[in-house]
Design a protein around this nucleic acid. Structure first.
Lengths: 113, 113
DNA sequence: ATCCTGTTTCGACAGACGTCAAGATAGACG
DNA sequence: CGTCTATCTTGACGTCTGTCGAAACAGGAT
């Protein structure tokens, strides 16, 4: 998929062009809501995958709202899901997480100069 | 662990509590706009600091809009600034960048399981 | 087939956000 | 002092976003 593709230079090494910035911004936007960030962390720290039914109970908002937030995370490429029988399971997309993390990382050379 | 401070566990290791999620979300929100993310990358990749006058020319929006975006980055703790004579200079706050990056990082143990 | 539970989509509304024009502030230079 | 340039603040406007209730959909159970 690569949208932003595989590896990348951290922003402390090279400025982003408008296209890269737009792509990165959509991912950060997906993480910019407290409920979504918490959803993301619960999914990422789950062992492999987690059922939606185990997510809704942990928040004070309605089911449709959780579903909406999950969709935003999905469209940002941060999670993926599958329906199995009655339940829907979500899991993290490590490549995507790592890509964003790398974007913000500070190489040692830069950190010490 | 302080709000921005120091070290933190990546979300792939432990789910965030609502307070941590709120704090992280504000930083991600600051990075969720293409112009702000590009501003951040220009400032982060500058050698030390950069003058506002060198930023405004690179964008198609008005001066006040750039100023507004810079304020958002500043209030998120991602950059800091100082006026020296006629010009205002901005520089990145590496600790803050590294904190967000660490939040999203995936430890090798987790990446391979 | 009919019901029931879990999940997503739809429609609507309040509040937040990005943008600009116009005015305000800070400092340099006469 | 007054004026000029660079930057920030204010106020207003249209758009986007988070939220909900209601309705639609998927699949298991009866």
């Amino acid at each position: 998929m690569q949208a932003g593709g595989g590896c990348c230079q951290p922003i402390s090494e090279a400025a982003l062009d408008p296209n890269q910035a737009a792509e990165g911004a959509t991912v950060f936007k997906a993480l910019s809501d407290p409920i979504r960030l918490r959803l993301m962390s619960i999914i990422a720290s789950a062992n492999g995958e987690i059922c939606v039914c185990d997510l809704t109970g942990q928040f004070d908002v309605s089911g449709p709202t959780i579903s909406h937030h999950l969709r935003v995370l999905r469209e940002a490429g941060l999670v993926d899901c599958e329906r199995r029988g009655t339940w829907v399971y979500y899991w993290p997309v490590p490549d995507r997480l790592q890509w964003v993390s790398a974007l913000l990382s500070i190489p040692e050379v830069a950190a010490t100069r």
